[in-house]
Simulated assay, not measured.
Amino acid sequence: MADLQLAAKKRALLLAKKKALLKKEGVNTPDPTGASGVRSTASIDSIGHGGGPHLGARVSNVRAQVVAKLAESSPSQSKPVVTPEVFDQIVPALKPAIEKKQAQYNEALISKPTPQKATNMVSVFGNLPELDWTIEADRRRLLINLEGMLLPWIQKIVEKGRSQRTSLAIDGLHLRLEYLPWTDCFVTNLSEEVLYTVMTSRFGLGELSMKPGDVIEDDLQEGLGFSERVITAEDLLWLAGLWTVQGRVLPADDPSRTRRLTRSPDCIRDIVIPEVHAVINLWQTRPMTAFQVISELNIPQRFVFGVMAAATTAQLFAY
């Protein structure tokens, strides 16, 4: 019995010394027996199954290295931070390439038409072939039917608004298109692209109508400012005629009738088609028929007929 007590004391003394040594090394080790007298697994992991007090620290160091390696090989790793010194070395080398790319981008911006000018491309003159006005079948193809189109309604509200001195709007578009007779202009929230679309569309019977406008003359006298687009009646009528006919002839018009263009509207400055400017410039010089303009300029008839319809709609011809 005495021998057992002595062995127990020696064992307790060894454990106390080992615990003191681990504490000195900075390793916190719980009581190996725990409160219940059962050896703690945490103590075994920390001590390392008899591997000495530094095994836990070595395991932690290996784990840190593994985590570091995984971070280096991970696809989702964060990008390295570029220091100012490295940046100063990179920029001069990349400057020629950056300047070349910027020049290409600027050139593309200049040459590429903007969304507004896209509606003024050659496609607005349609694709009809050269037709003979003296042949009945060709004449029917050249004359446009305006039934269900927006152009007649624009002409109506301008005519009635000017005579009655009251603002009028077109109902059925679900967007604003209002004529103000006091300034002879339209107020609209339609972009040029949308205007082009509605001008070339056909509406159902009774779908469009005329209604009183929202603006009164006193509003203008008080300095009403519009956040929406304002376009002169002359410009809108010109564009409406041009876009609607698509290179054809308005009903009741005759290309063989002699006329002279009195002036060109302001919106012409935004049109980049050279044939349009050639027709306008020539037709302002002297009275001519459409066929004479076609012959002298030697251009497709659809360009001349389109300008003729635009100028007729805007009432810019003198007969």
Score class of each variant (00 low, 15 high):
Ala64Phe: 06
Gly48Ala: 11
Ser36Phe: 02
Thr41Val: 13
Ser40Pro: 01
Gly34Glu: 00
Ile47Pro: 00
Val59Ser: 04
Thr41Arg: 15
His54Glu: 06
Ala64Val: 05
Gly51Trp: 02
Val38His: 10
Ile47Ala: 14
Gly48Val: 01
Val59Glu: 02
Ala42Tyr: 03
Gly34Leu: 04
Ser46Phe: 11
Ala35Asn: 07
Arg63Cys: 05
Ile47Gln: 12
Val38Cys: 03
Gly48Met: 01
Gly52Lys: 00
Val62Trp: 08
Val62Pro: 00
Thr41Glu: 11
Ser43Glu: 15
Ser40Leu: 13
Ser46Glu: 07
Asp45Gly: 06
Ser46Gln: 13
Thr41Tyr: 03
Ile47His: 05
His49Asp: 07
His54Ser: 10
Ser40Thr: 13
His54Asn: 14
Asp45Arg: 14
Gly48Lys: 01
His49Leu: 11
Gly52Asp: 02
Ala35Asp: 07
Val59Lys: 07
Arg63Gly: 09
Ser46Gly: 02
His49Pro: 00
Gly34Phe: 03
Pro53Arg: 02
Pro53Asp: 03
Leu55Met: 13
Arg63Lys: 15
Ala42Phe: 04
Ser46Ala: 11
Ser46Tyr: 05
Arg58Pro: 00
Ser43Gly: 06
His49Tyr: 15
Ala57Ile: 14
Ser46Met: 15
Ile47Cys: 02
Ser36Pro: 01
Val59Trp: 06
Gly34Asn: 12
Arg63Met: 09
Thr41Gly: 06
Gly48Pro: 05
Gly34Ala: 04
Ser43Ile: 02
Gly51Thr: 01
Thr41Trp: 11
Val59Gly: 02
Gly34Cys: 03
Ala42Val: 12
Leu55His: 07
His49Glu: 13
Pro53Gln: 01
Ser40Ile: 06
Gly34Asp: 08
Arg39Gly: 06
Gly37Met: 03
Ala35Val: 12
Val59Cys: 10
Ala64Gly: 12
Ser46Val: 15
Ala64Arg: 15
Gly50Thr: 09
Ser40Arg: 15
Val59Met: 10
Gly56Glu: 10
Asp45Asn: 14
Gly50Trp: 00
His54Ala: 08
Gly50Ser: 11
Arg63Ile: 11
Ala42Pro: 00
